[in-house]
Nucleic acid binder design. Structure first.
Length: 182
DNA sequence: GCCTGGATTGTCT
DNA sequence: GACAATCCAGGCA
């Protein structure tokens, strides 16, 4: 299976264009990997995004070049992983909400405290399974490093379900969640 | 400096 | 179906 790292140009487009095309791509973290099946788009022109109020120490990575990882900590116990998209300075990102395990399933189950099922079907869970935390903020997913985004030749699903985003309190009506049906 | 709220999850009823 | 757990960033005094 030919596996190549996703090009930065692919990600340096509008989050609403990149988000549905990320479905089917594979996120690799060391020995573990998972295929992206659910994402949400966030842009600085809508209040649900962390970047809405402009750059801050936490969100400055979202305003940088596309292809970097933005990890934030929420609710005191969960991490969520985003891929920075758009042009330099746009403040856009695509939240990775769910994966299907491809490699390293055993290690993921170990990190998930032995639970073998539902390893990566939520934004907080996939970060735990892939051992992503705040220290991974700013990692370049296009550089072919330990944590990277790859295309294994699988095309995006022919049918993509679009729904409003989950778990937010602002701009709740924007249909910016993209899901690959099972 | 202090106070508030959050792009969630797991567990209990 | 409802709620508690728990820490950090951002806003405001």
């Amino acid at each position: 299976m030919a596996e190549r790292v996703v090009e930065r140009d692919f990600l340096a487009r509008d989050a609403l264009v990149v988000a549905p095309e990320l479905l089917g791509k594979v996120l690799v973290s060391g020995p573990c990997a998972g295929r992206i099946v659910e994402v949400e788009a966030y842009r600085s022109d809508e209040p649900a995004a962390h970047s809405f109020r402009g750059p801050t120490p936490r969100t400055q990575i979202m305003f940088g070049p596309a292809g970097h990882l933005y990890v934030y900590f929420s609710y005191g116990m969960h991490h969520c992983a985003n891929v920075v998209t758009g042009a330099d300075g746009d403040g856009q990102a695509v939240l990775l909400r769910a994966l299907t395990p491809v490699r390293g399933r055993e290690l993921m189950a170990e990190r998930r405290h032995g639970r073998a099922a539902h390893l990566t079907d939520g934004p907080g869970k996939l970060c735990q399974a892939l051992a992503l935390d705040l220290s991974h903020t700013g990692v370049d997913l296009c550089a072919g490093g330990d944590v990277r985004l790859v295309d294994d030749g699988t095309p995006p699903p022919s049918v993509i379900v679009t729904t409003p985003r989950i778990g937010i309190t602002k701009a709740v009506d924007l249909p910016w969640r993209f899901v690959a049906p099972p």
